[in-house]
Design a protein around this nucleic acid. Structure first.
Lengths: 339, 339
DNA sequence: CCTGGCATTGCACAAATGTGCAACGCGCTA
DNA sequence: TAGCGCGTTGCACATTTGTGCAATGCCAGG
């Protein structure tokens, strides 16, 4: 089929027009919804296009409509269970509404979020979704002024320019405390990381506040970057002391998995008999038979859906500064003993 | 800063030129490496650009040099540990050579790979990397004829158009057999999935061949889609019989995790005392204390690097049909007992 | 002081597409 | 058969950018 054309470059509408014996406008109209073309020329054009392997150039099209169809997703640690699931959900929804995702990985150097924002502008993306990291405010304003949607996820800092989507971390963390408290636990540890991400901090705070209200004191252990290793290390530190905690709230499932493994492998403890654990995120591993972790489910589907709803409102300005907060529901499994 | 401009749309070089009091060409040259601009006008232009929040339009730029800088990554199940790590590695390397990744998620309907290829052409991507799925040959040819690099990963089917990167699955699988054989295991099961992916099939075959050469017979269990659940189910099926296998080769680490959990939780077995297990991929969970899985490491870094090397050769035709195969090295942990 | 050379600048055109406007042709009606 | 109207088509211009070419201006050397 397409081997007819020897040249190694993309086919233009002009070439299709010549082969079909019509004007270039006719080709353009054939591929534009709602344009007026007779059935016969349409057929001629489609045939020629098929033969040459023609595909409309979206880049050129975007020049005219200020609408590239591109949505930039900016994030770090995209190989993490939570982030990769989020990415999966978002890319699917975007495709369902005829957008395409451009992924910019900001793992590594710290100023790469800024570079990512620049890319967003360079490619005239319709929207920028920031999954992690702190973008410079000035560039955010440039994006908004350029007519982009800017959507911040899991950033509880209250900027008024961009739209934001968050999870009720504080509420869930309070609930986590009560789950453990009702199970009879009094010496409770909070396992977190050195990342200092807004959502993690919100979970720590929420838990501490609830504990304080109940007259308990909890301390936070931060043994490294958010992940299995830091959880394991925290377990080592906390459980080797003379006064072992009866329970732990791990602000992330990965931390929880590491923590549980340390308890079992290093100290021979049983969960939940000797130790109750509550996690957060409900990653796939939380449901594995080895963990059966009681945790809070990230409303990933809702987040992804809300992003697309925002994008489908034509005017970014109308939703600017809008804030959506979704609920993380508890998922009861086996790491908290029943009352 | 950029609040000076009230309009909600992208700034063009024309506007910058007017503010700076120079011609549009001067603006263009300021942002083009190697073009001739005096230091004074360059400064004026940069100032005006900063003030207006101007960013070069890569879409328009791409119209001229058939070079969009976009690389399409097409894949399904991107929330899977192996795929998300691959995605992470590739996006990083691409950014390092000034390309940007467009991710197309083909989970879901089966003909979406075809739609993905179309997107690749629509956006004039420089290259298309297929991480999973089977693209229609005719569209592949269109891509190649259009001057794109087409890179197939983990597809052992021997097409001669696209470039391909594979892993020596067969060799590794043979080695897996010998690891278990040397450990004294004779009744060995192969745990796979119903996916029928070329690489999984290659692993099954390699293992079976090596077993046959050693005078052993192995059967393959396929209890669902590739993942933890299918591994768990396979464990249930295989270990409830009267003749339990002494060892299992799971063609994927996820399958191995599920299999091990079934053995431990459902049948109270110990690994490796009662059962040896070998996996494949070396996902992060394989190194977790609960599993300590002996497995084979996917050469992810090498794959990502090779992609960029291919992209940096100017002419796709020169490397067309090229084939690279990387080695998956064994990672010894604790699920195979020492001789 | 004149002239050659060089760096710089602007004009105009190129790239691929969408679209308003005018013209064209066909069919139907009076 | 003439005329009206409507569907279709092509021209020309718009979108934003890079670049060849010619012109301009400046500096230095003779």
């Amino acid at each position: 089929m397409s081997e007819l054309r020897p040249g190694r470059s993309f086919v233009s509408a002009q070439q299709v027009a010549e082969l079909a014996g019509v004007s270039r406008s006719a080709v353009s109209r054939t591929f534009t919804d709602g344009a007026s073309v007779s059935e016969t020329t349409r057929k001629k054009v489609l045939e020629a296009a098929e033969q040459l392997g023609y595909h409309v150039n979206h880049l050129a099209r975007s020049l005219i409509h200020e609408n590239s169809g591109i949505v930039c997703l900016i994030g770090a640690d995209i190989n993490t269970p939570y982030h990769s699931r989020l990415l999966d959900a978002i890319t699917r929804r975007l495709q369902a509404i005829n957008r395409v995702a451009m992924v910019i990985n900001t793992s590594g150097d710290s100023d790469s979020v800024e570079a990512a924002l620049r890319q967003t502008l360079n490619y005239r993306a319709n929207a920028t979704v920031v999954l992690s990291g702190t973008p410079p405010a000035s560039l955010i304003n440039t994006c908004i002024n350029s007519g982009q949607h800017v959507i911040l996820i899991n950033r509880d800092d209250h900027l008024d320019g961009p739209e934001s989507i968050t999870v009720d971390n504080g509420v869930a963390a309070r609930e986590a405390f009560h789950m453990l408290h009702r199970a009879g636990c009094r010496r409770i540890a909070v396992v977190s990381s050195q990342a200092g991400t807004p959502s993690l901090v919100a979970r720590e705070r929420g838990f501490q506040l609830a504990a304080n209200e109940a007259g308990l004191d909890v301390s936070v252990t931060r043994a490294g970057p958010t992940g299995y290793g830091a959880g394991f290390e925290a377990g080592r530190l906390l459980l080797s002391g003379s006064e072992r905690p009866e329970a732990a709230f791990c602000v992330t499932d990965l931390l929880a998995c590491g923590f549980m493994d340390a308890a079992r492998v290093e100290f021979g403890m049983n969960v939940p008999e000797d130790l109750c654990v509550v996690g957060f995120d409900d990653i796939e591993q939380a449901s594995w038979a080895s963990y059966q972790l009681t945790t809070f489910r990230q409303p990933i589907a809702q987040i992804a859906e809300h992003i697309t709803t925002l994008l489908e409102r034509e005017d970014p300005a109308s939703v600017s500064g809008g804030r959506a907060c979704f609920h993380a529901a508890p998922v009861w499994r086996r790491t908290v003993r029943p009352k």
